[in-house]
Simulated scan of single mutants.
Amino acid sequence: MLRSGIIFSRPALRSTFYALRKIQTSSLRPPLAFSFDIDGVLMAGPNPLPAAKNALKMLEGDNPFKTKIPFILLTNGGGYTEQARSEKISKQLGFEISPRQVIQAHTILKEWVGKYADSPVLVLGGRGTEMRQVAERQAIPLQASYGFRKVYTPIDILASNPSIQPLVTATPADLSSAIPMDLSKNPISAIFVFHDPRNWFTDVQIMCDVIQSGGIIGGPYVELDQQLSNPIEVVFCNPDLIWKSDFSRPRLGQGAFKEAFQAVYKALTGKTYPFVQLGKPTTETYIFAEKTLNDLLSELYGPFDSPPAIYMIGDNPESDIAGANRAASRANSRWSSILVHTGVFDPMKGPPTHTPTHQAADVEQAVRWAIEREASRLVGAESL
């Protein structure tokens, strides 16, 4: 049966949607909102998945509520400003997505600027100076600016003293974009792994140099107890060991780089180095996502008393599903999780490591199921 462009899979829901039309409320506010992973849910590499556009069309108003349903893109990917990422994915999907709807693995680092705005920080990941451009204060729109003022990259450090990594030669293009620094007068205060590093060999070496010397690269090593009790803060933004691209099998992600760094540091010192983990499935990231969705809902429909149901649609049980399930355990939180079969998770290899609220073949079926579920609940509540 076809209603509002949606094929309802359960005949028993026909009466539900007829009843929805009769419900008279003071607000058109929809009872739910969505959080989508990108890779493996909406996209396969640079290409939209076939179901993605139909799913987003439902949220634009082609649904039983006849209203716009708020959504965000919550990804462990990164490497761009939110402005640039929203423009890129808007073109790919054919839907207008604002920067505020994009939460990347490193977006939450905007909240760390107050602590490190004027301190030298080392930023890892991406190509060349891409991550410097994301992290530092720029004369560009406010939403695109993070605000760190003293951002350095491994290329800057190699340009300052090439003997730091004698087995790697920086290219002329790298050197032309480098900001040479006096390593003895610019102690690194924190290391932010914004995005997946390209040169693990160099990056692990420089991280160990920073940590073991108390921030002064090339300086004498400090005692191990001091390294661990008063550590240089290390932040990893993406815990994913693997991720799904347009290649046939999953690829290693930033989580693999973290494991490599920890293995080397432990081999050197016998200890594991303390770190902060951001990104899915961390609680901090889901709290940030929930606040963003609630703000978007308030802007569209005004203040509200009860929070909406939030559906996390993802392809990775270890990040998308685990994080949403953990968020659901918080007081006054209404997260549900839907695992799709278009990305990392392969249903042929057995059940997922974290049990979702529901499984769906693709994102279109996932969105349809969530809308049907909340519509049924709304009708049931009105009939009491």
Rank of each mutant, 00 (worst) to 15 (best):
G61K: 09
F71N: 00
H106S: 11
E290V: 05
V363W: 03
S35H: 06
T353R: 15
K22A: 09
A33D: 06
V123P: 14
I211N: 12
L297Q: 14
D118T: 11
Q212M: 15
E299Q: 12
Q138C: 06
R10I: 07
G215P: 14
I7N: 11
P141H: 02
I242G: 01
C208D: 15
F34P: 07
F288M: 10
G350H: 08
E60M: 07
I89W: 02
G380A: 12
F34G: 06
R10P: 01
T75C: 05
N316Q: 06
I23Y: 12
G61N: 06
I140Y: 07
S213E: 11
E60N: 01
M131K: 02
R368F: 04
V379S: 10
S119D: 13
S213R: 15
E318M: 05
V134L: 01
R132V: 05
H354C: 03
S160T: 04
S337N: 09
T67D: 05
P50W: 04
I164T: 10
A33V: 04
I242W: 00
A328I: 02
E96P: 00
F65Y: 09
K258M: 15
D362K: 10
Q165C: 12
R326C: 08
L42Q: 10
V102H: 00
I371F: 11
K258V: 03
E318D: 14
G45R: 11
M1S: 13
